[in-house]
Design a protein around this nucleic acid. Structure first.
Lengths: 294, 294
DNA sequence: ATAGATATATCTATTAATTAGATTGAATTG
DNA sequence: CAATTCAATCTAATTAATAGATATATCTAT
């Protein structure tokens, strides 16, 4: 196998203009360079240089090899500097756990910005519900968590207020009652509940409902509500489209028709978080700040 | 610098599932593998593997390195097999000299086909006129020559008949004469002549003309004819568009209004030509055969 | 629990590859 | 024609890579 060093010699000879000059550049002796080229030419069974007078000149084959060798070396160099960044603490992988309450497009925009700036860092996104985010933190399955709950021992930065509203499809029975509804009315109808993604399975939603339909993802839940399968509390930001299109309609409740939850951004390792994690967290915060202004 | 062999070890360990298995695959001892990874990790100052139990498992950083190392090795491998083709006689560079009489789109199509099949071979095209092609052959500046002249000592395969027709712009004075023209008529007008690209500079065209405008390229000459700067003999295939659009019109001559030249394909090295040169030559012939049938 | 099997790490002696330095021969320069 | 420059070659010394033996840890099956 031709080694990287041998390719490097070939390139150095061309770039510097000769064997002796290449030796200077690479901090080697001239004989080492000569030896390296001999080995290269030997193992490929061709001539890369023709000695014209006392100058080393590339053969046509050599020219082709030179061009590709430059690319190869460039790539090897890139790998090493990438690795250097890793050893300096830059993460190869950042895992995010996000409660489905959080507007996903917002996070995805931040992730996209981050990934273009840090192409060597992978990002993994896990959508969680309620205790699922706690679990991600405690089991070290996520570096960044966006959730409404801060497990004891962690510190969270407030991100945004998520407002819930009780809604149902316009032709749902609850919308035909013709007066403001109370808890008794709701009890008689099916409530759509999003299943807790944590393994302990804390239940969410109002437990007073007799009939319940439990979904694993909020998007499915919204779809069910639109189809008239039941009523539910949804984050306003998540159903903006549905409200505008009129396929979902807010229920007028005596009280409790609007609830709200504060979402927090939590670093698993607090201020010991790596540089990439911190940058990504900041990007998310910036995105939200920008949205709030608009 | 991390060597290719070290990257190869990393990849082999992952692909085969362990240090010992990698040693087997690479025909080395297990301790060599261990040593190589130690060197790699040492020079990058990071850990690529974590020994989980007694299994070697990639760290997140290691995963990223693994993916890129595969690409790097793939590229190095490609270079070597490319070089192997070179040493087996495949040319790194093929030079073509083509008389401008030859329809260029025909050659370019053949070149394109060749280049997609042989991405590592460069192709250089030189357009010549008359003795320029002889010179390219004799000075070894071209491997393939397409020309109407075969210098002594070379063998040419007949390619195609190129038919010349005397033409001028429709509003040219020669078109206003109102009868078939003879040599005397032509003598009185400016002839457009393409300059010989050879250094000896044999003159082309009919030397009886008193006024001449000499151009270095046939395309320029056609443009001049369209603008009414003179009359000229052009290959029919080269001015098909101009004839259809009516911007050039054939002159009706008593005799000599149509001449023709046979073009030949000549290999500089005859049947000692390299495999790429032969293939490219054959492609050109095939293209012409296909055209002739249509 | 415990023996046996499996997998990586480490140590050591050996072997192979690389290196520098001196020298030679060829080509260029003044 | 002498001086200089450049690559090739030879040699000795150094360095790096390797296999083999052994140690250590862990998993598996009894």
């Amino acid at each position: 196998m031709v080694t990287l060093e041998q390719w490097q010699c070939l390139v150095a000879i061309v770039d510097s203009g000769g064997y002796a000059a290449a030796a200077e550049v690479l901090n080697k002796s001239q004989s080492s360079i000569s030896y390296a080229i001999q080995k290269l030419e030997g193992s490929l069974d061709l001539r890369a240089f023709k000695i014209d007078g006392r100058k080393a000149v590339l053969t046509p084959v050599g020219q082709t090899l030179y061009r590709r060798a430059k690319v190869l070396l460039e790539e090897a160099q890139q790998m090493e500097s990438m690795a250097l960044q890793f050893s300096a603490g830059m993460e190869a992988e950042i895992k995010i756990a996000m409660d489905t309450l959080f507007p996903d497009w917002l996070l995805l925009e931040a992730v996209q910005t981050f990934m273009t700036e840090n192409p060597m860092t992978r990002v993994e996104l896990q959508e969680t519900v309620l205790s699922g985010s706690d679990e991600a933190l405690l089991k070290k399955e996520a570096d960044i968590v966006i959730s409404g709950r801060i497990p004891p021992g962690f510190l969270g930065d407030p991100l945004m207020q998520v407002t819930f509203r009780a809604v149902a499809a316009p032709d749902h029975a609850l919308h035909q009652v013709g007066r403001t509804l109370d808890y008794q009315d709701l009890r008689l109808h099916r409530q759509l509940v999003v299943k807790d993604s944590g393994s302990r399975g804390t239940d969410s939603g109002w437990l007073g409902a007799q009939q319940r339909l439990t979904l694993s993802h909020i998007n499915t839940s919204v779809r069910c509500a639109v189809l008239g399968l039941g009523y539910a509390w949804f984050p306003v930001l998540k159903i903006q489209n549905e409200l505008e299109q009129g396929v979902l309609k807010p229920l007028s409740l005596v009280s409790g028709g609007e609830r709200s939850v504060e979402l927090y951004l939590i670093y698993r390792d607090g201020h010991y978080a790596g540089p990439g994690t911190k940058q990504l967290g900041q990007l998310i915060k910036d995105k939200i700040a920008k949205i709030s202004v608009e």
